[in-house]
Design a protein around this nucleic acid. Structure first.
Lengths: 133, 133
DNA sequence: CCCGACACTAACGTGAGCGTAATGTCGGGC
DNA sequence: GCCCGACATTACGCTCACGTTAGTGTCGGG
């Protein structure tokens, strides 16, 4: 039941680095539910889910303190900060998220264009050296 | 002909900040073609195009020193560094670019999923408070 | 009880800029 | 010919989200 794992296993399961996980604690995003006698971080299943949630948020480009607020609404914990007017805040987050998606789509467009251009440049110089023979 | 503009106009035309443009010079990405008597940076049309090229590369997530090398191949200038085996390097860049596109597509997928989830959370709590009446 | 794997903290480094201060330059008006 | 406001310059420090050591401590199996 209270399956507690230490940071290494969590890192493996989430794909986050040890440093990142500790950092998220440092800034109050995910605080491990317990510590061992010797001071090892002990994480529970919900802790891991929370980290995975954060990982899924990252492509949206939120800053960590924004994520802290969003988590306080979506997945509150005892030591989550109080958010005033969470309803309102959620609307803002949603708007930001839509905007982030739009930005990503635009970026992807530009990136694909650029990648195509690179493929072009890859062909033409080869043809030049073929012609040289 | 030699339409030379100062950094302010360049910033406006490229959408980059003054600080960023100076930074790109600092790291050797885009060095202005000339300086005024008083030391003002004077940019030419090709300089601006170069900056726009960089701006288009950014979504691919290249680091600035990689961009410097790529520019040295695609758009070499007198003071570009020598690149050995540019052919080979270009292939690497192209691969990296394809990878970056793939990453962006994945990110976009996750982001869209997340945005949809946020829209959900936006509906359901409203319904709850409507039901309460 | 000892070893190797794993974890801990503390502190400095990095990339790609942004902010700010103190100072210098430009160009038009008078 | 000089003055003023807008714009420019260098130079330094800050930021964010970690990465990278270094040095030490803890855990669990043999």
């Amino acid at each position: 039941m209270g399956e507690r794992m230490q940071i290494g296993e969590v890192a493996e399961r989430t794909g986050l680095s040890l440093r990142t996980i500790r950092y998220y604690e440092e800034v109050g995003l995910v605080v491990p539910s317990a510590r061992s006698q010797g001071g090892f971080r002990l994480y529970t299943e919900p802790d891991v889910e929370r980290l995975q949630l954060i990982k899924r948020m990252k492509p949206l480009g939120f800053q960590l303190d924004a994520m802290r607020d969003l988590l306080a609404i979506l997945d509150p914990t005892p030591d989550s900060p109080e958010i005033d007017d969470p309803e309102q805040r959620l609307v803002e987050f949603s708007d930001t998220a839509e905007q982030a998606c739009a930005d990503l789509r635009k970026k992807l467009g530009i990136a694909e264009e650029f990648a195509a251009m690179l493929r072009d440049h890859l062909d033409s110089p080869e043809r030049r050296s073929a012609n040289r023979k």
